[in-house]
């Protein structure tokens, strides 16, 4: 491809990215604006930035909350992958649960959270997992597993049967088939589902509210204490939002090369 085309595409890509994050950039501006100016000088960009909001946010137990969220989200990914890939394989290749199981999963995703709050609460109280990160890891699979199973099923469906037949003829058993052939092919799906599950768990708020109180509080609950009885601490709220974006973004940045690799890995050559 011509070099100047690459530059033009880069410019377009920059414009698109700017469009998507412009509101977040403005939240960033609010997060460093002195409280008095947030409403009195709405559009001013010439103020002297303050880190007061950030230090207020971080002086509470915010870091612990972030850590809790991180743990929950990561373990949730593990759980989701562990139970969804076998289920998707069964649906796609072994022809079980095609209709009922798959649509039952959709009802799970659809569950109206607020109405579910009291029953869910009672159940976790019975099994003694209130205010425990494990309860969140389990509950978040309610909405993450359905997407994962549907997603993986679609990907496995797209793999020609010949691939497996060839493998079986070569003497490959089902376990090796998975590890050596299926998993690499659906790698893009695994990467995407990991990101999407992470995001869903990272930002979930109602179950986190219902099932936790202090020890396992997540950052979404922690960020909301800046919305008080009547008053809202706008600067602190913005700062908390920005801080809450950093860990996942850092994580994505660290794995970004592998991420793109993973997303392109699965291309079938057959």
């Amino acid at each position: 491809m011509a070099d100047h085309m690459k530059i033009i595409y880069t410019i377009i890509a920059l414009l698109i990215s700017f469009l998507f994050i412009s509101p977040i950039l403005w939240i960033g501006v609010i997060s460093v604006k002195p409280t008095d100016l947030i409403f009195s000088e709405v559009i001013s960009l010439t103020f002297f930035p303050t880190i007061e909001h950030y230090s207020n946010v971080l002086s509470s137990q915010f870091v612990t909350y972030l850590l809790n969220s991180l743990l929950v989200a990561l373990f949730n990914i593990a759980l989701v992958l562990l139970i969804s890939i076998p289920a998707a394989y069964a649906v796609s290749r072994l022809r079980v649960g095609r209709k009922n199981f798959m649509f039952w999963l959709l009802t799970l995703r659809m569950t109206p959270p607020i109405v579910f709050s009291i029953p869910i609460f009672v159940i976790f109280q019975l099994i003694g997992l209130l205010d425990n990160l494990l309860s969140l890891v389990l509950v978040y699979s309610i909405f993450n597993v359905p997407l994962a199973v549907w997603f993986f099923t679609t990907f496995i469906n797209a793999i020609p049967h010949e691939v497996e037949e060839a493998a079986f003829i070569d003497g490959c058993d089902i376990y090796n088939l998975w590890l050596r052939i299926l998993i690499p092919i659906i790698m893009p799906a695994i990467v995407s589902i990991s990101i999407l599950s992470f995001i869903a768990a990272w930002n979930e708020y109602l179950f986190a509210l219902i099932l936790t109180i202090t020890k396992s509080r997540t950052w979404t609950i922690g960020s909301q204490i800046f919305v008080g009885t009547y008053r809202v601490q706008w600067g602190e709220l913005a700062a908390a939002g920005i801080i809450g974006v950093i860990p996942p973004i850092l994580l994505l940045f660290i794995i970004k090369e592998r991420l793109i690799q993973g997303l392109t890995l699965g291309r079938l050559r057959g």
């Binding site: 708020y205 219902i210 609950i221 909301q224 919305v227 008080g228 009885t229």
Partner: peptide, 12 residues
């Protein structure tokens, strides 16, 4: 707890 969450939490 923040305001939007407080009433839901207490009720539940």
């Amino acid at each position: 707890l923040g305001r939007d969450q407080y009433f839901d939490k207490v009720k539940t």
